[in-house]
Design a protein around this nucleic acid. Structure first.
Lengths: 340, 340
DNA sequence: CTGAAAGCGCTTACAG
DNA sequence: CTGAAAGCGCTTACAG
């Protein structure tokens, strides 16, 4: 059995109420008593039982984080941002992922009851929002991240994927590219959807007669690699390739490298996200920088402010164009085999 | 106020005890009653209050995971493995990272009290183990991951980094390399330490007169990139470079690519970990595969078995040599600029 | 400034 | 098979 507040009270010769007050920093405790209590508590290695504390205080000091998945560059960065703010505020994180099975979101959300003071939820699915709406209760503050929930005014925070994709297209078009292929993300993914829409709209506006050239990918390197090979096999290759995220862009880049295609001389290539590797590959990758960690951090801060400031729709984060070697127009190609 | 077990009891015309039993699947409930209770519960969207439940049942169905950090390829994979097993067993995960500040581990561990049924702890620091030993109580089962805790018989699971590094050295030596440089990981990191030791020992045994050539890195691409540039500036370049992890190997690879150095013709390059990108870079990277997700999953399974089977020291996971292009001896270098 | 007591929402022997 | 009641370890009005 572990040490409880009673043990501390007995040792310190006070009531449990006083121990509680002393340890929680309430004002109304005599200084000498406080010191004694704190001393005894640390001597006994007492640490309050969290469940008991939160049952009586109605606070858990914990935030629930429900994500589609836990691994990968994106979630990992998101967690970093959330985690950092959580630490600043002394909060714990109860994480739960539903592994790409939207139907399990409901269970994940329900399981959070009585365990968290608030919820951060990301559900980048275009459809299947019922699992969400049905399980978001008004009694538990929740902040949606990158999640589209039509017909509700739920607080949410997202990335301007559409605007970002348009900005990237403008960059490519200004560089003189005309045959621009797009490697799309998963069809049921909201970000992927918006980025594709940005590509299509920008293309239709600038080059009304150019047909959209869209390859299906699913946001991982393998699908980018496949798409890259497919593009190389086309009768007329594209001038430029716009991958809906950096991981696919890298897969595509490696396919091009393997085939001896020179970037950007033969084909320009750009991505979206600005993952850490983007700047290290050769040639370095032009991309739209999305500050994912900031997205997470801001979402948590907004969640904590929620009762006070109820602006439900936050301004979306604007991605920033990062021009690197992979799309530099008319750059002299660097020598690749003439140094030792 | 949200729905409690009392509300369900009232609606279903039974006592709270019966509601509890019905919902928890106990045998001793009349079938008709069980059905009624379940129906009422779902109608009311009742979901048990976790803190209350765990306070009385002494079980939390939650596992605490204390890691140095939450982001990056390694932790992300580790979490994936842990998360998968957690879901199989219906467990939740309370995560906590101490962001590379070992001194905060104690607080993180103590905060887990009354919130978790067990602990998964990773602390890859060579020194500073006091924070750990002082806060690991026998009352809470704990499993150490990749953590060296001298003088205790704590249950732990780790990777055979030393053996892996030796195996890689053997591969390089067999391929005929003699001037082998090593890009080391952080000095206070246990994995880094073991891999360096493997390099040194293998070198000393096979080439007693060859001096060790060690560059300091810190496990990220940037430090690998720096080390790569440093190696290129050496009077006599190495035959082969062994980076203590893949991220550094990639940074080094990009530095070599930028300089026009041909891999593996000019210099062979190998890493450690087998992160997903290793197979996609050009040339693809030879590495030691560490099944990180399995490490996490196995650690959790071992934790759950802990009371029953108390073998404290688990067999370390053996990394597997994955030979790819970056170290293939005498491979014809593929053309890089002759296709269109 | 301090203590006795109620109460948070459950689970679980104990009776019946 | 069911209910009344104790109890889990805290916090917090309420008195004093």
């Amino acid at each position: 059995m572990s040490i409880t507040i009673k043990d501390v009270a007995r040792q310190a010769n006070v009531s449990v109420a006083t121990v509680s007050r002393a340890l929680n920093g309430h004002e109304n405790v005599a200084e000498a008593v406080r010191k004694r209590v704190i001393h005894v508590a640390s001597e006994l290695r007492y640490s309050p039982h969290h469940a008991a504390r939160s049952l009586s205080s109605r606070r858990t000091h914990t935030i629930g984080v429900v994500l589609p998945d836990l691994h990968g560059e994106f979630f990992s960065e998101l967690m970093r941002g959330i985690d950092q703010v959580a630490r600043e505020r002394g909060l714990h994180l109860l994480v739960s992922s539903y592994h790409g099975h939207p139907e399990e979101q409901g269970a994940a959300l329900r399981a959070m009851r009585g365990r968290v003071d608030g919820l951060l939820v990301m559900s980048p699915y275009v459809a299947n929002t019922d699992f969400l709406t049905e399980n978001l209760t008004p009694s538990l503050p929740a902040m949606l991240i990158n999640t589209q929930l039509p017909g509700t005014d739920h607080a949410s925070l997202s990335i301007d994927n559409y605007g970002g994709a348009r900005a990237m297209m403008q960059h490519l078009l200004e560089a003189g590219h005309r045959r621009i292929a797009f490697i799309a993300g998963p069809e049921d993914n909201f970000d992927a959807h918006e980025r594709l829409r940005g590509y299509r709209d920008a293309l239709a506006e600038s080059l009304p007669h150019a047909p959209a050239w869209v390859l299906q990918g699913d946001f991982d390197e393998a699908s980018g690699h496949r798409a890259g090979r497919e593009l190389l096999a086309a009768e007329i290759r594209p001038d430029a390739v716009f991958a809906a995220n950096d991981m696919m862009a890298l897969g595509c880049l490696f396919a091009f490298n393997q085939a001896g295609v020179q970037l950007p001389r033969d084909i320009a290539l750009v991505g979206f996200d600005d993952i850490p590797l983007a700047r290290y590959v050769y040639p370095s990758l032009t991309t739209m920088r999305v500050n994912i960690a900031e997205l997470g951090g801001r979402a948590l801060r907004a969640l904590l402010d929620l009762p006070q400031s109820p602006p439900p729709q936050q301004e979306p984060l604007t991605p920033e164009l990062i021009v690197r070697e992979s799309s530099l127009p008319n750059t002299p190609v660097r020598a690749r085999a003439d140094s030792s």
